[in-house]
Computed example of a mutant assay.
Amino acid sequence: MTPLRRSLALRAIAALAVSAVVAQCAPAQAESVVKLPAAVTDPAVKAKRATAVLAGGCFWGVEGVFSNVKGVISVESGYHGGSAATAKYERTHDGKSGHAEAVRIVYDPSQVSYGTLLRILFSVVADPTLKNRQGPDTGSQYRAAIVPMDANQRQVANAYLAQIGRGKYFAKPIVVPVEVYKRFYRAEASHQDFMRRNPRNGYILRWDAPKLAALKRLYPDKVRATPAP
């Protein structure tokens, strides 16, 4: 069985298993929920719009959470780290493409800062102590990563990783890389807005819906009234 078929088969099995019991069980808990402090280094940005590229495991849930963050204008799922030739779902699942499943976030810096996006990423979306895996998914394509778009974002990223590392909010060392931006490739249409379009999907119910619930519980003042496109 190819890595792609194995990955899809495991996700399908997990979805079926969760769907079979979800009606009888209490809501699942997010794998890692830690209410982290605000970024100490987080200078104001005067631009009306800014872009962030972040990775935190399967892009379904990453997109689903950030589309509900106040100040976010749009979110799209895609691939970052590899070439155009391998920027396809079926080409990323051997872990050799260099790509991570990532999201590109367009946001209003006057409403939500870059540091706040990182705070949310590591509070409710991704466990920063896991290398090349998140939740049930393994492989470098599921790595958590920060991809700064400019020097200011890089400064905030490095400072925040150091800040939460010093604070010992996690039992294990933080292993999130701060990567050099190459090019973001938009994922296939079937992956865009997946969480919003498939709220009863077994994978979403088990792994991603709890992340959104955690966002609303921990940071209610950061939640949009309606999701961003």
Rank of each mutant, 00 (worst) to 15 (best):
V65A: 10
G98F: 06
S67A: 15
G82M: 09
V75T: 05
H99W: 14
V62S: 09
G61R: 09
G61C: 05
F66Q: 04
V62T: 15
V65H: 07
Y89L: 11
A84M: 06
A102G: 11
N68Q: 15
S83P: 00
G64A: 06
V65W: 04
N68K: 08
H80D: 13
E90C: 12
K88I: 01
E76T: 15
H93I: 01
G64V: 00
S74G: 11
G71L: 05
G82T: 13
V72I: 09
K70V: 00
A84L: 08
K70R: 14
G95Q: 08
G82C: 11
E90L: 14
T92C: 15
A100P: 00
A85W: 02
A100R: 09
V75R: 01
S67L: 00
A102H: 10
S74A: 10
V69E: 02
D94R: 11
E101T: 15
G71N: 02
K70G: 02
E63A: 08
G98W: 02
G78L: 03
R91K: 14
T86G: 10
S83N: 12
G81P: 05
A85G: 10
A102L: 09
R91I: 00
S77N: 11
S97R: 04
G78F: 11
T92S: 08
V69W: 06
S67P: 07
G71H: 03
S83E: 06
V65E: 08
T92K: 03
V69S: 02
D94S: 13
G95W: 07
V69R: 04
G95E: 10
G98V: 10
Y89V: 12
H80T: 07
K70W: 00
S67F: 01
R91D: 14
Y79T: 10
E63I: 00
V69K: 12
E63L: 07
G95I: 06
G61H: 03
F66R: 05
V75C: 00
H99A: 07
T86N: 11
G64P: 04
A102V: 12
V72K: 04
A100F: 02
T86E: 11
A102E: 10
K70S: 10
Y89H: 15
G61N: 11
G95M: 13
S74Q: 07
H99D: 11
V62W: 05
E63F: 00
K88H: 15
H99L: 13
K88V: 06
E63Q: 14
E101Q: 15
S67I: 02
Y79A: 08
G82A: 07
I73K: 04
D94V: 12
H93T: 01
V69H: 01
E63R: 05
D94T: 09
V69D: 01
V69Y: 06
V65I: 13
S74P: 02
E101D: 13
I73F: 01
N68S: 12
E90V: 14
Y79F: 15
I73A: 07
E63G: 01
G95Y: 13
G81D: 09
A100W: 01
E76C: 11
H80M: 14
G78Y: 05
S97A: 13
S77V: 15
G95R: 07
A87H: 02
V75D: 00
V65K: 04
S77G: 15
A85M: 04
V72H: 00
G98S: 09
V69C: 08
G98N: 03
A102P: 09
A100K: 11
E63V: 01
K96E: 15
Y89N: 12
V75I: 03
N68W: 13
Y89R: 12
V75L: 03
G71D: 09
G78E: 10
G81L: 06
S74T: 04
